[in-house]
Computed example of a mutant assay.
Amino acid sequence: MMVGLLILVLLSVNLGGLASAVLQLGRGEWLAAAGSVVMLVLLNVLGFALLRDLRQR
């Protein structure tokens, strides 16, 4: 059950982060969009590490 919830959270974070970056790029806020993408990548790395750990148990 935890694996399914983590996958749902990762999916939501990815969709929200991508939408945020696209909207910021549309307004011409390049630095803010780059920060959103960096945060999205960091959260993905953390999420996939947690997901791998949960699946090994």
Rank of each mutant, 00 (worst) to 15 (best):
L18V: 15
D53H: 03
L5N: 12
F48V: 00
V13W: 00
G28I: 03
S20R: 08
M2P: 15
L15K: 08
F48M: 15
D53L: 10
R55F: 01
A19P: 02
G26N: 05
D53S: 09
L25Q: 01
L40R: 01
A33V: 02
L31W: 06
M2F: 13
D53A: 12
Q56I: 00
S36F: 02
L31I: 05
L18N: 15
L50I: 12
G47L: 09
A32N: 07
G4K: 07
R57V: 02
V3K: 14
A32L: 06
R52V: 06
R57A: 08
L51V: 11
A19R: 08
L18Q: 15
V3W: 08
R52I: 10
L15M: 12
G28T: 04
G26M: 08
A49F: 07
I7D: 15
L42F: 03
V38T: 10
Q24T: 03
Q56E: 08
E29N: 11
W30Q: 13
L15G: 10
A34F: 07
A21T: 01
S36K: 03
A33Q: 04
G4C: 09
L6D: 00
L11K: 15
M39K: 11
L23W: 04
L43S: 05
V22W: 10
M1G: 15
A19N: 06
G26K: 10
N44T: 07
G26Y: 02
M2K: 15
A34K: 09
V37P: 04
L5F: 05
F48S: 12
L15P: 03
L6M: 08
G4Y: 04
W30K: 15
G28C: 07
L15S: 11
G26I: 09
A21N: 03
A33M: 06
M1C: 15
G4N: 10
N14D: 12
V45N: 11
F48A: 14
L40C: 03
V13P: 02
L54P: 05
V3Q: 13
A49R: 13
A21W: 00
W30S: 12
L42S: 07
L51D: 03
Q24K: 08
L51N: 04
V38I: 13
M1Y: 11
L46F: 14
G35M: 11
A33K: 05
V45C: 14
L40P: 01
A21I: 01
L50F: 04
V41P: 05
L25V: 00
A34C: 12
L5I: 07
G16C: 11
E29P: 00
V41N: 10
S20Q: 08
L18P: 10
G47I: 05
D53Y: 02
S12H: 04
G17A: 03
N14Y: 06
S12N: 08
S20K: 13
S12V: 09
M1I: 04
G16Y: 05
W30T: 10
L40I: 03
L42G: 04
A33G: 06
M39R: 07
V3Y: 09
L23V: 09
V37T: 03
I7W: 09
A19L: 11
A33D: 04
V45D: 09
V38G: 09
A49W: 06
M39V: 14
V3M: 15
S36W: 02
L50M: 14
Q24W: 02
